[in-house]
């Protein structure tokens, strides 16, 4: 799936964002090599989603530079290099009739080019993607009638349909039950290991961060740390990230 040669998948240099006088992100810099599996963790309001939106080119930073595969987010988007699964998609109300197949194919839109002719390669690719996300058997179902976990997989398939090199997910498991959650993270792991897909996701779930991903970016306005996930808990990062409040409720860490 990977289309680019060896550069960093994402480079963020000195990114600042303020909105209405409030600082949301302050001098954030990091690089994510291709093929990495990285999680962003931090408190609510710490700027996680905002950072993703800047990387996706949906928001412009007040200051600083972002490169995705060595080019601007807009250029990377045009190439279909970025797959995105937004927040709360598993719970979102979809009040109009649309089938699973139609959602997944809509992810293939820019790759098809002008017109509606689907080549055999398009069809084969979309079939593969649906198999991988295990949604093939749901193809004729209405998306609005699916469970949270099923819907999550449909939107993963949708994001893969354009053959991206980078997959960005925002709180992917909100509204998904525990069994579906495990299956979901297993899917992400195979996408990362088998296809070399760079994966970046946001979660406030520290347990997931330490057990699933290889690298953690801890964000609370500033980048508190960018480290391997097993080192994440051994340092005093959690305290710096969440302040003293976390210490009085150690059970929340599920340790």
């Amino acid at each position: 799936m990977s289309k680019m040669s060896a550069t960093n998948a994402i480079e963020v240099q000195d990114v600042c964002l303020s909105l209405g006088g409030h600082t949301i992100l302050d001098a954030v810099s990091f690089a994510i090599p291709q093929g990495s599996y990285v999680g962003i963790v931090g408190p609510n309001g710490g700027g996680k989603t905002t950072l993703l939106r800047i990387i996706l080119g949906l928001l412009r930073p007040t200051h600083g530079r972002v490169a995705v595969f060595g080019e601007s987010p807009f250029a990377a988007r045009r190439r279909g290099n970025i797959g995105y699964v937004p927040q709360r998609i598993a719970q979102a109300d979809i009040p109009f009739p649309i089938s699973v197949e139609e959602i997944v194919w809509s992810g293939r839109t820019p790759a098809i080019g002008v017109g509606n002719r689907r080549s055999p390669h398009d069809r084969k690719f979309v079939e593969e993607v649906m198999d991988r996300a295990k949604v093939g058997h749901l193809r004729h179902r209405l998306v609005g009638n699916l469970s949270g976990g099923e819907r999550q997989r449909v939107f993963i398939a949708r994001s893969l349909a354009a053959d991206p090199s980078l997959l960005i997910l925002d709180e992917p498991t909100t509204g998904v039950d525990i069994a579906a959650k495990e299956e979901f993270y297993a899917l992400l792991k195979t996408l990362n290991a088998d296809l070399g897909l760079t994966i970046l996701f946001v979660s406030h779930d520290i347990e997931v961060m330490t057990s699933e991903v290889a690298f953690v970016l801890a964000l609370n306005q500033r980048l508190i740390c960018h480290c391997e996930s097993h080192k994440f808990l051994s340092e005093d990062t959690v305290e710096r990230l969440y302040g003293k409040a976390m210490q009085s409720h150690p059970l929340h860490l599920h340790l």
């Binding site: 080119g57 988007r77 279909g80 937004p86 139609e102 959602i103 809509s106 992810g107 820019p110």
Partner: peptide
Amino acid sequence: SCIAFDEELAETGG
């Protein structure tokens, strides 16, 4: 239809 389903997803998809 891609934009109608979800405008932001369409935009990030190129």
